[in-house]
Design a protein around this nucleic acid. Structure first.
Lengths: 217, 217, 217, 217
DNA sequence: GATGAATGAGGGTTCATTCAT
DNA sequence: CATGAATGAACCCTCATTCAT
């Protein structure tokens, strides 16, 4: 293969990380070799190491980028509306969009937000990752508080536990919706989005004030 | 080393899979080599291949066993009480117990229940795994239906979607409770179990009939 | 290639280390890959790792073995005679023999005897290597002391510095005799052994009591 | 980065070889990559290949340079005095100085002087290296002959063998003094230089005429 | 002349698996 | 049945070197 056209560094990094993300998602990190990534991306194995110090850094950067994206999605969702339920749904959709765009990151992020608290050794990227995770939490805390202030959300809710429960439930829901999309379609006659909406509403019901629950569907 | 005492096949399989399970838990599947398992279990590496066709089969069987345990836990949970909320909580605790006992498979199972619909190639164990998954679903469907019949659970609920939502939410919750146990403790002053109870109650609230919600905590 | 005949472990280790020694000597440690060794020895690369934990261990064991051999040669030399000069020459010949039999070790050993004093981290082999090095020193110290007692060797000599000077001179001499064998032959008309004897005598002259020097050659 | 100022070729070669020399010393030739050299010297990796055909040539030139230095040291030593012992000691100190300045090449040179006789392939630099080696020999031959003429050095000595023995002994001595500096200090209470002087005197004793030996120390 | 970019070849090491016994 | 022994294939990573600009 001939030499590559001169392109800005960044293009190559993007090329590579894009492919890496794909392969990591499809086969798992451990089962994706640098060789695989190189071949699939059309570079030489050695070239990967020109753009990334090692596999670890490649992963770290992937996670970091994805966290940033996730943060942006949620921030945007909250800015688009003032109505609590609408904002909630927008957040959910943001999460779904994120999951669809960065399926691999999705899994990773869920496993990593804040977890670094327990770790003593931080790579530079990991530190940043942790910070963005905190920012996302702050965004959600604000959302919840505002919902409570305007009387839409139950005031007996504890903010932090609720946020974390949210995270767990929503991500679990999205995960299952993705993994079993076909099954859901065949057995329930629901599209992934329909199923998700059902679940999102279930979750919302759990936090709104008593009188506001609607009959679903 | 001399030959091993003649013991029923099954004993050896159990010995091996027990150790494997342990190691998989401690170090992850990818980071546990057949060598590790053999050494720890006190067999020769080659002997592992007498009892298991390959690593994949070993894993498959482990997953299968764990699914069976999960099924048993849930079945037991449902038999222990007739009160809907109690049964619900018992199911949740069963899940937690399962997660603690088979932390490693927890994720695997979540990704595997039913998903095989989409797969063309089935190992024998995978087929069984799938069947047990179905049985678990059936158990939960019955639970939900009975809850609706006795007027505790909202009747406007669609059974199948609700079950799957449950799965997603509960597993997501448990996952996060486990991954962030330390964080939860430090920032919320809650133990893992306290946090989980909070979340379980949130979820339950979403399915019970309107008037029955209690103030939490 | 078919499977290997069953031979005692030790045979394989010897096979491998023999070849390794050869290659290390010919091309240097750094320029000899495990692959080279494997190919030359007729084993698969992976097989090397059955018999040696890694390259480092292979080297370490090589050094250790060679030190042992050296020790034995010197011990033998000292036991063969009681005459100081004879013993001295026997030691020299022992060194030469050792150099010819283990040319690679020769270099290594010279660089390693005692040097580990300066190192903080010891591999098990390194410790042993060091100990054998000390034993060799002790042998030589005894020899020198006995020579002084019987009035053959100058009594104004400081034992330890003399031993170390010996080491340096003798090994340097042998090294050059080996490296420049051809040159020595062509330019001096001397065989390697003749040249060495010349040098050995020079060195001996420096330690004997004044009146005993002979005219050389 | 902008282009480099136009400077005479030679400056760049010096810059590079200076750094290379340093790194080779610190980490060894094998463990010093062209990358390391380039970075440390502030050039691009590719630029190194503008000034040196390859790593081998870079090393060759370094060796050559060092040989030249050694030659100069010895020449200077001989010019500084007419007294045989003084000249001898000056030569020794010249060698020590050389070893300290070019520790890494010391070994290389010892292995390479004249050895190329046996080699069929000569790089241009290697040829020169060989010639300087010869010149050094000539210097020493003259020294020895003059010492014999003035009655200080034993006349029964064969010049060429003695020279080579010298080389071997002195270099061996210096090598050991360097490798075991710490050990020598701890066990003998001697500085490297004290130890070396001891050894140098021992060697000198072996070539002077019988009556002139002094009691040492 | 100087360099950014790229790479083929190879480094040590591990692993799941096989086969003769 | 159980295993010691062996290995092909793969893994992450590094390096000297080249080439278009």
């Amino acid at each position: 293969m001939g030499r590559r056209k001169k392109e800005p560094q960044n293009v190559h990094r993007k090329n590579i990380s894009k492919i890496a993300e794909q392969l990591f998602y499809e086969k798992g990190i451990e089962n994706t070799s640098m060789n695989d990534i190189a071949k699939e991306a059309g570079y030489s194995k050695a070239t990967l190491y020109v753009y990334f110090k090692n596999k670890e850094e490649l992963i770290g950067i992937l996670v970091l980028e994805s966290m940033q994206k996730l943060h942006d999605y949620i921030k945007l969702a909250l800015e688009e509306s003032n109505d609590t339920k609408e904002r909630y749904k927008k957040i959910c959709y943001g999460l779904v969009k994120y999951q669809e765009e960065y399926p691999f990151y999705f899994k990773l992020v869920l496993e990593n937000i804040n977890i670094d608290f327990e770790t003593t050794h931080f790579l530079p990227e990991e530190k940043e990752t942790f910070l963005i995770g905190e920012q996302i939490n702050d965004l959600l805390i604000d959302f919840l508080k505002q919902g409570m202030e305007c009387g839409e959300i139950r005031s007996d809710i504890e903010v932090l536990p609720a946020i974390f429960s949210f995270w767990g439930m929503l991500s679990g829901l999205i995960q299952i919706a993705t993994n079993k999309e076909l099954y859901v379609g065949q057995r329930m006659g629901k599209s992934k989005m329909e199923f998700l909406n059902y679940g999102f509403d279930m979750i919302y019901d759990s936090i709104i004030v008593n009188g506001k629950r609607e009959k679903h569907f």
